[in-house]
Design a protein around this nucleic acid. Sequence first.
DNA 1: ATTAGCACTCTCACCATTAGAGTGCTAACG
DNA 2: CGTTAGCACTCTAATGGTGAGAGTGCTAAT
Lengths: 369, 369
Amino acid sequence: MADEATTQGERSAPHRSTSDLSERQRIVLRAVVEDYVLNAIPVGSQALVDRYGLLVSSATVRSAMAELEALGLLSHPHTSAGRVPSDLGYRIYVESLMRESALDNADQLMIRHQFSQVQLTSNEWLRLAASILATSTRSAAVVTPARARRAKYGHIQLVELSDQTRMAVLVLGDGNVVQRRLDRGAIDRLAQGQATSQAELDAAAAALNAELSGLSAPQVRRRATKLNPLPAHVAEVVAQMLEEADHIAVEEVFTDGIVNVLEQPEFAEGAKLRGVLEVLQRSDFLEQLVPVLTRRGGVTVIIGHENVNDAMHEVSLVFAPYGNTDSALGLLGVLGPTRMPYPRAIPTVRYLSTLMNELISSHSGETHD
Amino acid sequence: MADEATTQGERSAPHRSTSDLSERQRIVLRAVVEDYVLNAIPVGSQALVDRYGLLVSSATVRSAMAELEALGLLSHPHTSAGRVPSDLGYRIYVESLMRESALDNADQLMIRHQFSQVQLTSNEWLRLAASILATSTRSAAVVTPARARRAKYGHIQLVELSDQTRMAVLVLGDGNVVQRRLDRGAIDRLAQGQATSQAELDAAAAALNAELSGLSAPQVRRRATKLNPLPAHVAEVVAQMLEEADHIAVEEVFTDGIVNVLEQPEFAEGAKLRGVLEVLQRSDFLEQLVPVLTRRGGVTVIIGHENVNDAMHEVSLVFAPYGNTDSALGLLGVLGPTRMPYPRAIPTVRYLSTLMNELISSHSGETHD
DNA sequence: ATTAGCACTCTCACCATTAGAGTGCTAACG
DNA sequence: CGTTAGCACTCTAATGGTGAGAGTGCTAAT
């Protein structure tokens, strides 16, 4: 169960397993991590025996700590300070020291209940998921809508809004909707030089819907050559829309709880804060995440320097994909300081990803409650 | 021209006009504001004569400053510090001291050019507007899409996405699009208990489009009673969608340049920062802004405590509405510290609002370039 | 009305000192 | 041999004192 949560850390050479550690080292490391996660102050040997009922003296703990430091799992801000887990220390903790449990039943019910309260809009689901993640892990949450890897044509609607404006509304195969204004001049020229009527637009839309269903951008382009001038022109626009939809658009990413992160003492000063905020605003780090997440499925934890993105060396990610891997894929997870409550974050992310799966794949069938 | 930029400060009793001030006071106040806006450090009498070529001695300036302080336009962090403008001081400055010019031609062209580069998506426009505002004023920019005060039915499309999923995509009268999943169970029951086909959905959509065009939520509800079961059921959903669209949804607000604000020295420490960020995230302050902005049109400046929202006593807003006041209305503007470069922000906001007007009302007609 | 001069106030940077926390080492102990 | 008590050592963080500098407000002279 706990080993589902793994990492992209495979390149960092010696994959140190828990078996390298003595029982005492394991206990001490776990205690250090948990204490530091809780209090954000480097933890000393004495504090550890006091607070965790260890049956040995502080001196013994000290030597264990020294060993762990030699292994690179703990570090030392300065001579007379307590120990702090290193990224690698957190990694070992996450992989084999952490007592991870599934989300308890009360929490699960509470979350389900919130979802049942909400309107059937997928945007509302996403917002809610982000909000739940953020409050329950006290980190920043990020949720992207589920989208097909390659956008496919679903169904189009051409609307005359006013004399001046015609609009194309394209429903993608994955249920997402993209819209675009049409250049009226170009359209009218194609339709016998007259102002196009709604009827003509409907006819064009019907032609497109008959021809293009399920096609991707290049396929649409190829097929367009066989159409009449007006539908052909729109088909080109459609192809562009499909291409754009192939990226995760920042505007569609739901985030919540950014303040949770900024409140953490490690981001008290401006510089680091700025970096985090910038990353979070333009959420392009998500694009880099997609391949990693899909390759392994389940919950992925990326701790500090394990992240390839320089700006994120001070933070950890706990993310999972959701949705049907090939037809529609979304990402969801939390971002927080490396000093993150992993035993809480991981099950929450896991649970929410399965929940979103249910919602997305079979909404209407069974009622889940 | 400068008096277009006014405020909601009318309730604060003595509307002190510029005529109350001597010429010297005016010069000193202007210099203090401009220096402080530039350097963010309280400005002393000596610095003022040095930097602004005043032909008087520092002692004279000091007495002028003392007068201004008595009038409540300047204030004094502590005995031996320089002066800082008060909210009221900024107000006077904005209303009658500031040398505001229209945006110069180069800037205008540069902005227009950027808009011409971009795809015809209205979302892209909004994003671009936010980005331009943010970079050119070095503040946080906020742009909402233009939406009708009361959402009106435009055109609907009912799509069968998969066996399980049917979706309603509603184009509003103002060109915005809202979507919603339909409860398949309910629908099938209405359609003779069979799985509804795309053809049936199309028929229902056609019926709705014929009946509901231009109607608001309550009107749709009333009309629904006269429809067949399936369209009637969808009409109810439509009414709900229209109602939801009547709020400014946070998800649709485009912000940019938040970091610009957080970099400002006045937000160096955590507490204030937190407030600002929270306000900016859940952008409900915009709702409060709508009536004020529409009542007066043009650019509105709200400085520090003039804002009714407690969390925004440390910041200033420079906002303008855009769009056709009755058919579709959007907001755009910047948020920054009270120490804001008003002479730059105001013309920029003004220009962008007129530009968005052009884009929105007649996009296709004339080419603007 | 303006200005030079001056006493006064307050901040800020600098320094020294100290208390406390925590370590690492060593020697003693079971 | 692992564990522990004891102790010297190091580093931080808080405290307080000092002095320079900036800026004011007042007064008296121009």
